[in-house]
Design a protein around this nucleic acid. Structure first.
Lengths: 259, 259
DNA sequence: TGAATAGTGTCTTTAAGACAGTATATC
DNA sequence: GATATACTGTCTTAAAGACACTATTCA
């Protein structure tokens, strides 16, 4: 049996003084090859997947806790998070709680029946947008598998995590209707078809290529580079970058842009 | 000294088993005579005002707790609430905590130094929209004053409540940009100038009366009645009601309307 | 009849949306 | 030259925004 696990678990046995009785669950989005991805993890000897999550220390804010979770799973620092919702339904942890406890015990971790970690927890849902290629999916002492899943092909999820992902997706869609998106999800250089496909994916709606280019140009958020990317037996698309100043301007103003 | 207060306090002394270590604070908006109001309360012998708030029972959701708070302060049942934010800054309760404890003790309430109610709390901010004239501002065992304050003339507030109000206001503004507002804030029958002024107040922006009427008509959310309201030595304005079906349709669709 | 506010139509400007033919890279 | 995708301009339509005069109530 693995004593290291027990060593890690022990310090947080009496965690009341250090942790709020509250967790964060983070929906980490990435975008790759035309589909939205979400980073999920799966504990050893367990067949349900879960969102990366953690507990909120009393000397940090919830936002800070969420960012720590994102960092620990992606190795990306200073990724902004946005709140998605509060998950406080009294039976939200019914689906999978006892299975998690059994699984931990089966690995030789000695946990009491009333271990606080399995109390009925309120969880704060956060979402984060990441650049797929830069993420290094990282496990932990209890997370055996960490990997991207396509939003349209998710595995079985623990607790109410499917709901949290669904609400994060809706929120992302709503943001895309009113603010520019893409800066956090696309690589530094991208093509017009790439950003258009991102919008089509998030908004679940097709855009005419000419009208889309016109809109982007009129908004002034992207700049055409003098480079192309060779991607097949056909004309090579030009590369673009975001005009960050203009992007941030639209991002921060209270008014909205419409898609 | 008032033993009734002690009687009320006692049952929640060891509240760990019944309450989450988490509170809700609700920003209850009303609209009256051209200005947005928020319902605040002030404990006896205390000179800081606060948002109506409460604790979350373990057998209820946070949303449910917020609605209970709204009901207890307004006597309005089934008022919808919307989340505003999570307030978890570790020193968020610095401003006023000891003053509240002193104030309670000065009324003969016997509270220990480490009384859980004054732990460092995470609070969930909620907002609710109410019809000003229907609200019956209601106190409680510790709230001496309960009354409306204009958003542009707020008193000194405890903790981080000024920030919560400010963020709720921003959220309301953002909602007004993208969805219809007014159904919850205006009386059943209202005039065109009244709803226009509401929009001007919330969006902090003037609208041309002709264009505003055109927009409302085109959206189809209001219906002109065959009644007028005599309100002064000038032409009487027609009364309108909301077309609730159309209003709800716009409210629920993922797309947005633009103001 | 004077003072105050309500009500309403047209023109201009801007942006959204529909639509198709030419250009280029590779095999 | 065949194939696949990138690129781009014009017209139509819808909505936003600017703008000013007439109507009604009551003192």
């Amino acid at each position: 049996m693995d004593n290291q696990l027990q060593d890690i678990i022990n310090p947080i046995f009496n965690a009341d003084a250090y942790y709020h009785e509250m967790s964060v669950d983070t929906v980490i989005f990435g975008y790759h090859e035309g589909s939205l991805k979400v980073l999920l993890l799966r504990p050893a000897n367990f067949d349900l997947w879960m969102l990366p999550g953690g507990y909120i220390r009393k000397n940090e804010s919830a936002e800070r806790a969420a960012r720590n979770v994102v960092f620990s799973r992606t190795r990306l620092d200073a990724i902004e998070t946005a709140p998605v919702g509060v998950y406080s339904n009294p039976d939200r942890m019914k689906n999978g709680r006892s299975a998690v406890m059994e699984s931990m015990r089966s690995q030789g971790i000695n946990i009491p029946d009333d271990f606080w970690m399995f109390n009925q927890f309120v969880s704060l849902g956060y979402m984060a947008l990441t650049e797929y290629a830069k993420v290094q999916p990282s496990g932990s002492f209890y997370a055996e598998d960490v990997r991207w899943w396509s939003l349209d092909d998710l595995p079985q999820l623990i607790y109410d995590h499917a709901q949290i992902i669904s609400e994060a997706k809706t929120r992302l869609k709503y943001i895309a209707y009113t603010k520019p998106i893409g800066y956090d999800l696309l690589p530094e250089k991208f093509t017009l078809p790439e950003i258009r496909t991102l919008y089509e994916t998030v908004l679940e709606k097709k855009f005419d290529d000419r009208n889309f280019a016109k809109k982007m140009t009129n908004l002034g958020i992207i700049t055409k580079l003098d480079e192309t990317r060779a991607i097949g037996p056909h004309r090579s698309p030009y590369l673009y970058t975001f005009n960050k100043d203009r992007y941030d301007e639209l991002m921060s103003q209270v008014g909205i842009i419409q898609f």
